[in-house]
Design a protein around this nucleic acid. Sequence first.
DNA 1: TATTGTTATACTCTATAACTATA
DNA 2: TATAGTTATAGAGTATAACAATA
Lengths: 153, 153
Amino acid sequence: MANPALIRDKDAADSGIGALDSILGFHIRLAHGAVYRHFNEAFAELELTQKQVSVLWLVSDRPGIAQIDVGGRLQMDRATTMTIVNRLQERGYLRRERSASDGRKQALYLTSSGETALDDAKRCIESHETWLKSRFTPEEVEKLVEMLSRIHD
Amino acid sequence: MANPALIRDKDAADSGIGALDSILGFHIRLAHGAVYRHFNEAFAELELTQKQVSVLWLVSDRPGIAQIDVGGRLQMDRATTMTIVNRLQERGYLRRERSASDGRKQALYLTSSGETALDDAKRCIESHETWLKSRFTPEEVEKLVEMLSRIHD
DNA sequence: TATTGTTATACTCTATAACTATA
DNA sequence: TATAGTTATAGAGTATAACAATA
């Protein structure tokens, strides 16, 4: 069978749009998938997902943060945030406390075993990031982060 | 409550790594999430996901492509490819045919209603891409795609 | 033996809707 | 009324394991 990569742009003339490879969103999805897989391999031992590490990290950076604000920072709705916080609480990595200033809010804090898990995770992230950034110059990394921020901000 | 965005780098000194915002993988995930959500809003009417559109598009570009090659191009394993192809087949958008040259393979083809759906999807993608690319110059888009390709290739 | 497709199964993320408690 | 949390539920993607058919 012929190499599929050599057959391109066949239907480009049929519509106002090029081949799949010309779609920016397509490349974002593929890049995300590649990072996602490498992340999961790196974190298989720690049994932590991207989302779980992000939440632990965020709570560590802002002790007492409310669930709604975790969701806001990580772009998750309330229900999605609940499932992740529940899982981390069941594993004993964080605890909920009713906010003193606003009774509707739950203030989140890391437990000591949560802090240990986060420390392990940060070391793991470091080598994961090294793998990811190895294909770019520091200037390119900076530019890439800046451009990606324009998408998610 | 103080603006959480103003509290930063609190634990940066505790480990060899900076705040969550300094992690490239974090920005890729957030950007992907933002694109994912906008995509789903744009495709709510067509009831098609990113993956489904990608598969339709790929089969259209390479009629007779085998499932294993679809998975290879879109970075999915065989089981994941199956679920998506099954869904598209159930909806009558594509059909399977045993490959004449290799009896192990299933050759995939769009049905006529699959082609109609893909045409609609391409129009929808066009406005979605316009939304996404609006924050970049053409040179930046090119650079971004090139950098993302370095990650997923 | 290796590859491809298939089935079964399970987990995570995401989202919607409805309900409760608080502001 | 609006906000925050909670619960129930469902769909989509991802992955592993085991099996059958074919190379």
